[in-house]
Design a protein around this nucleic acid. Sequence first.
RNA 1: GGCCCCAUCGUCUAACGGUCAGGACGCGAGGUUUUCAACCUCGAAAUCGGAGUUCGAUUCUCCGUGGGGUCACCA
Length: 497
Amino acid sequence: MQDIQNVRVRFAPSPTGDPHVGVIRQALWTWLYAKKMNGKFILRIEDTDQTRYVEGAVDRIQNSLQWLGITWDEGPDIGGPYGPYFQSERKDLYKEAAEKLIENGFAYRCFATPDELREMRESQQAAKLPPKYDGRYRDYPKNDAEKRAESGEPYVIRFAMPQEGSTTFTDLLRGEITFENKELDDFVILKSDGFPTYHLAHVVDDTAMEISHVTRGEEWIPSTPRHVQLFNALGYKIPTWVHAPVILGPDGGKLSKRHGAKFVLEYAEEGYLSDALVNFLAITGWALDDHTEIFSRERLIEVFDLKDLSKNPSGFDQTKLEWMNGLYLREMEENDLVDIFVRRLERDLPAEIPRPIDWALVKELTPLVRERIKLLSELASLVGFFFTSDVPTPAAAEFLTKKWKDRSADAANALDSTSNILEPLPDWNADNIQQVMRNTAEKLEIRAGDFFSLTRIAVTGTRISPPLFESMEIIGQELCIDRIRQAANSLRNTPAS
RNA sequence: GGCCCCAUCGUCUAACGGUCAGGACGCGAGGUUUUCAACCUCGAAAUCGGAGUUCGAUUCUCCGUGGGGUCACCA
């Protein structure tokens, strides 16, 4: 039996912009595993590249996670026993590690300028050689290097990769992976501005923070042998590596801003439910069995395991996400959905409509529309007519299709019949409305569907609407009759064509 | 190009070496129906190719092919 280690995993984005669904899926999987194992999920900000720092990105990252319900046990905002959680505040640690490596002969100072290195690469490429740092300072006398460093000359610190043999590591999903050391060059671990590169920083931090599983995208596989060497040179224990598949964009490239990636918060904006996005993200690249695909967060935590992740990159099936969002909309607890609808309508309904939005009214219409939308963003346009007494009568052409084509007078008469029969209706409810309107249709010998469509357009303002009679019940007798009369008049004033 | 990873319906995926290769989205047909949806039924749709190993390969091995990743003082 292996030792029951405490699971400590981390999500470590760099604050260079909004997280998109690809990186957040990675965070989700990592978080699910932490929860499942009763471990800790840590948020760490990898801000070692000052030039790429984007103002506000840290907030956007946190907001994205929060929206999805991905909570962290330690992080930049709440601190924790292994802080600080900004790498920029841990500079001394990296410097110390780098210097220790120099001392032990695992690293050295390199004074090559960026221009010099660029020229080196260009000539290598011209000679059809793979571009690699050629180790020009690897054997530079240590004393001379120290002197130049002390005189203030800029330098970087490079790791001295073994030049022979190979490096093997085990990936939880893919098993053993081996790289020939001669393929790897002496990579930079500490930049001339004193900041570490990712390679050094994450090795130092993951060790200091006692990270048990390094979860990251498979694009890191090629540099993992460097990390193995670093862990070893520093005398650190190797963590468990999990290189998860990436998400591919519509063009087949790795999902990124340039390849059609959307930000997590854009999905919130467009009216996706976070439960649906979480469910969808979890099951793209992972499956429990051959038939289950709807999972609550709780259930995911129960059944998810990193080792069951798929090995191959997946596309992002936007259409299926929409379907799933619709499904969540339909299945959700009604009052919860009403809350969500109210919030959305507060935001989306035209400014003329007085606020606050009436919760009770939304509660009434929720059953009528919940199965008719896939995205919350469709809501306002579908239910707007419930919230104003001023629904403009659509143009005549809207009424005069199919059965009513070129028959504006007949249509007007049909609407008159409708208002006349509805006017004296004692009990204004959907069933009664339906009954009298059906009777009328029958009397007039008009197909029910054709007959109702006029009223639908008059009352709701559109050809496509929530169920007519229930909507009419909600709107109220007086207002409905007003709208029907208005429509009839408008049709009478339409010149026959 | 070197190195590395990966390969099942269009897409996401399931299948101790033995299944009629399963499910879901989407698509098509039908049903229900006051519009639109939703819902129900049915249908079309896949193991990249070639060698092996085996009584038997989606599954194991090798070689191709294809896709992706990576080769920075970015992560």
